[in-house]
Design a protein around this nucleic acid. Structure first.
Length: 554
RNA sequence: GGCCCGUUGGUCAAGAGGUUAAGACGACGCCCUUUCACGGCGUAAUCAUGGGUUCAAUUCCCGUACGGGUCACCA
């Protein structure tokens, strides 16, 4: 007896009235300029926001916005078991922190855009329209296999060294159920999933990937699941329906999806839709000593458990500026970015012509040294005001006490941030907002503390004598040259070499060099020997603070 | 195991059938300098491996090794 597919589809989806063409009308092709890309990220809300999420977001954002297209956020929450309370908010906040701008999609205040809803659980009815259509066309069927039966099949397949999964003879019993049998099972309340009817043959498919070129692989032959027993689609079905109806032109996702390509290609084909351009990105890797042979290094996938730098929250907590992360990701993504940046130090990254074909196919390593270098450069390029604003807003969230301090002395802080900025070669003192708190601490009495050892510079008697003389001759109004002349004079008086080279050549002739003298000043004023220009620092601190700090040593 | 993807210095990488095989980070050295930093200059260091194709291959093809991914009612 031949199955009446139409009747089956009615039986399975009695409430679905809309037709595929209704959906097409409701979500028509977008009116966009030629060549505009529509991209998205589709993270699942597990509470953990991954660097990879940002990595793909950067690609999608650039592609869309540099082509006059649309970039949107879709929440892929089809897995009920992994759902975490508040995860969507965490995700949206993290994306906001890193300055990822969405034109459409899920947002804090609700969804925005005409192609929504943008959360897959709310799209159940939409998926069912196409599910029903597939059943009606005889391409999908209800499967009543229980977890135990599935397990038994898998064991048998393992024993026979067959491919695991539901196909061929394993699919047959459920595929050939009659309408009456299905009805009976449904009435008995048996739970079911909707499976796609895979076709067993030796065909191969070729998928073109914008990053990797052509990928050739066997076509799909599995009866994979379209709808789970709760009526929610699997990733595969949701991806195809959503990216078509939301009119994505490019699908950017991790390379772990390559192996499910045959399913997706198949669905696009039977639904009569044009496939988007796939861009499968490389997995983020990390290098580590091999556990068995520690002398060797081993490359491995970043892991959630072992690698804190994989979580976006790490960058937030460390106060790594969003601009730094963008610069870093862009250098990873397009190897010519650094070159471009060197040639265009003042342009915003949005001016960089991003290209998919320049992307690397092998796993990029997250190199924190490199990140540090980029961080210093990026922050050195910012003007003091931008640094002030960004630093303060980080402190507001992660170091409230420090934020209060900054706000208590806004002018001094601004002046301090300008130290070393004049001239063509700015100092690169700040790499993260967290470290900025440490670096800047000497500008405030509340946090000032002597860290380096004064006794390494000169013996105590000499210290006292130096500070006494220095204070005597100190005139806060001196300009840099006049000030330094005085320092040189005292250096000579105390029997230190004015030129460090002289001391190096004949150390026995001097008590030390001007290096020791200026180090004493640095330590007294800033607490450490590694500090910006003394004259500039003195003027940021003001005469009273300078005298007070120096007097401690007399 | 099947199926996919990959392999250029310590790291990120550019590159093309013939190159002195770019550049950046890191390391080291020198220079500049009132310290540190910044900056400048320089040094060491790479085409996984075996076979083909070719006058010529790191580049094209095949195999091997190694690494990675995936084989769910997870994404």
């Amino acid at each position: 007896m031949i199955m009446d597919h139409k009747a089956l589809s009615q039986l399975l989806f009695p409430d679905v009235k809309a037709l595929p063409e209704d959906m097409e009308k409701q979500f028509p092709p977008r009116q966009l300029p030629e060549g505009a890309c529509v991209t998205r990220i589709g993270p699942s809300p597990t509470g953990f926001v991954h660097l990879g999420n940002l990595y793909n977001a950067v690609i999608g954002e650039r592609l869309a916005h540099q082509s006059g297209g649309v970039f949107y956020l879709r929440i892929e929450d089809t897995d009920d078991k992994r759902k975490v309370e508040g995860a969507v908010e965490t995700l949206i906040n993290a994306m906001a922190y890193f300055g990822v701008r969405f034109d459409e999609g899920a947002a804090e205040e609700g969804d925005k855009g005409a192609y929504g809803p943008y959360r897959q659980r709310q799209r159940k009815d939409i998926y069912h329209v196409f599910a029903k259509d597939l059943v009606e066309r005889g391409l999908a069927y209800p499967c009543f296999l229980t977890a135990e039966e599935l397990e038994a099949i898998r064991e048998e397949q393992m024993a026979n060294k067959e491919d695991p999964g539901i196909y061929g003879r394993y699919a047959e019993p459920n595929r050939s159920l009659t309408l009456e049998e299905v009805r009976k099972k449904l009435d008995a309340g048996e739970s079911w999933v909707l499976r796609y009817k895979g076709e067993m043959n030796d065909e191969r498919i070729t998928v073109s990937d914008a990053v990797r070129g052509n990928i050739e692989m066997p076509r799909n032959f599995m009866d994979f699941v379209l709808l789970k027993s709760d009526g929610i689609p699997t990733y595969h079905f949701a991806h195809v329906v959503d990216d078509h109806l939301m009119r994505s032109t490019h699908v950017i996702r991790g390379e772990e999806w390559i192996s499910s390509l045959p399913m997706h290609v198949e669905l696009f084909k039977v639904l009569g839709w044009e496939q988007p351009v796939y861009c499968h990105t490389a997995t983020l890797m990390k290098v580590e000593p091999d556990e068995e042979d520690p002398s060797k290094l081993k490359k491995r996938k970043l892991s959630k458990r072992k690698d804190p730098e994989l979580a976006l929250s790490y960058y937030q907590q460390e106060g790594i500026s969003k601009d730094v992360v963008w610069e870093f990701l862009l250098t990873l993504l397009n190897s010519n970015y650094e070159e471009w940046r060197t040639a265009n130090p003042d342009k915003p990254y949005t001016d960089f012509p991003y290209s998919i074909s320049k992307m690397s196919v092998s796993g990029a390593l997250v190199d924190l040294d490199k990140l540090r270098d980029i961080a210093k450069d990026t922050i050195a390029r910012m003007d003091a005001e931008t640094v002030y604003k960004n630093w303060l807003s980080w402190c507001e969230e992660y170091d409230k006490g420090y934020a209060d301090l900054i706000k208590k002395y806004p002018e001094r802080t601004m002046a301090a941030l300008n130290v070393g900025k004049n001239g063509k070669k700015p100092r690169k003192d700040i790499e993260t907002w967290k470290q900025a708190c440490e670096f800047m601490s000497f500008y405030y009495d509340e946090t000032f503390k002597v860290q380096d050892d004064m006794n390494e510079q000169a013996e105590e008697a000499v210290q006292k004598e130096f500070f006494r003389k220095y204070l005597e001759s100190y005139d806060h109004a001196d300009d840099s040259a006049a000030w330094f002349d005085k320092v040189k004079a005292i250096t000579e008086e105390l029997g230190f070499a004015v030129k460090p080279k002289d001391f190096k050549k004949e150390p026995e002739k001097y008590k030390g060099s001007i290096v020791h003298i200026t180090n004493m000043l640095r330590i007294a004023l800033t607490g450490r020997a590694n500090a910006p220009d003394i004259h500039e620092v003195s003027h940021v601190l003001g005469e009273d603070m300078v005298r007070a700090r120096l007097s401690e040593w007399v």
